[in-house]
């Protein structure tokens, strides 16, 4: 796991809405695209605040959920890479 700090790009907005059930979305407010999330991916993305490094984010994420740590680590790394590739998360912060 790396010690870089990431934050949500200003082109994106996280959304949690209470309809008949709770829905989680990520909006690209520039091109209008919408990504569907679930609680796990929403919580994960919300932890990237531009202050914590990726190690700290995973530690906090791991503390929030009960599951197989190795699986969580693989999922975390895969999603982190996807979000970096799509420039949803950007490098920066303190």
């Amino acid at each position: 796991m790396e010690n870089k700090v990431y934050a949500l790009s200003s082109s994106y907005s996280l959304f949690k809405g209470e309809f008949n059930d709770i829905k989680y979305y990520l909006f690209n407010i520039e091109d209008g695209s919408i990504y569907r999330l679930n609680e796990v991916s929403y919580d994960m993305l919300a932890l990237f605040d531009g202050k914590r490094d990726a190690n700290k984010v995973f530690t906090l994420f791991n503390d929030m959920y009960q599951g197989e740590k190795d699986t969580m680590m693989i999922d975390f790394k895969n999603l982190l890479q996807t979000w970096l590739d799509k420039e949803i998360l950007i490098t920066g912060g303190e």
Partner: peptide
């Protein structure tokens, strides 16, 4: 441990049939 949520595979999928409008949001 009792306060932890049950882990599920994270979902991240682009919606193909729906877009977001900043204008509609600010003012289906």
């Amino acid at each position: 441990e009792g306060n932890k949520k049950e882990y599920q595979t994270p979902v991240f999928e682009e919606e193909q049939e729906m877009n977001f409008s900043k204008e509609i949001w600010e003012e289906c």
